[in-house]
């Protein structure tokens, strides 16, 4: 069963609504014990980097997630800040990330970028990805996904970048390493493409 980690308010309900409509069983994990035996795990995004990491620590989710994801190879999907915490750390905070995918989260800095984009990066943007990716099966690249963020994931290893999106610069709009997936955009707010992606994740 798909297990959505509940560590405070956020987009949990929106993800659940889509799975309900797809008739794909899911449960919301309110405590670490609920994660035992999960077949798929979703880490939604809430608030800031440090806040999210400390909630994972305080609630006791961190140990069980390390076990299920790193030892039992359960597929995990981090969404928005849920993707950013997969990194080693972030300019947004002081705490260490989960460190599951090597990289660092940086602020979209208009001063550093040629096109001086507005921040936050807000709205629908297109993606570039190779056509054989199971997570993107049936997804329309041009239509893209809904983004809403001020920080982005800079991968240390190019091979961990699953898709790129251009906004002032070309950045990793999604990452993947083995059973670990992260998307910077909000599939739960991305209409048909988002539904498709959440359905594909369920089938992995």
């Amino acid at each position: 069963m798909i297990t959505i980690i509940n560590y405070g308010s956020g987009n949990i309900q929106a993800i659940g609504n889509i799975y309900t409509r797809l008739k794909i069983p899911f449960k919301i994990a309110n405590c670490p014990e609920d994660v035992n035996g999960a077949e798929k795990i979703i880490l939604p995004g809430v608030g800031a980097f440090d806040e999210t990491i400390s909630m994972l620590d305080k609630s006791g989710f961190r140990d069980v997630l390390d076990k299920e994801v790193l030892e039992n190879n359960v597929p995990v999907l981090g969404i928005c800040v849920g993707m950013q915490i997969l990194a080693n750390g972030s300019e947004e905070g002081q705490l260490s990330g989960l460190g599951w995918i090597n990289g660092y989260v940086k602020k979209i800095d208009k001063e550093l970028l040629v096109q001086k984009p507005k921040v936050p990066h807000l709205g629908w943007n297109s993606l570039e990805f190779s056509d054989d990716l199971p997570l993107y099966k049936g997804v329309d690249k041009e239509e893209g996904f809904y983004f809403l963020h001020s920080y982005y994931f800079e991968c240390e290893e190019e091979s961990n970048i699953m898709s790129k999106t251009f906004y002032g610069t070309s950045f990793a709009s999604s990452v993947n390493k083995n059973n670990i997936y992260g998307v910077q955009f909000h599939p739960e707010k991305s209409h048909h493409n988002g539904v498709k992606l959440l359905q594909n994740f369920a089938k992995l």
């Binding site: 609504n17 889509i18 809904y146 809403l148 707010k189 991305s190 539904v195």
Partner: peptide, 8 residues
């Protein structure tokens, strides 16, 4: 609305 809608 939130139950029905999957755009922001």
């Amino acid at each position: 609305v939130a139950r029905q809608l999957n755009i922001p």
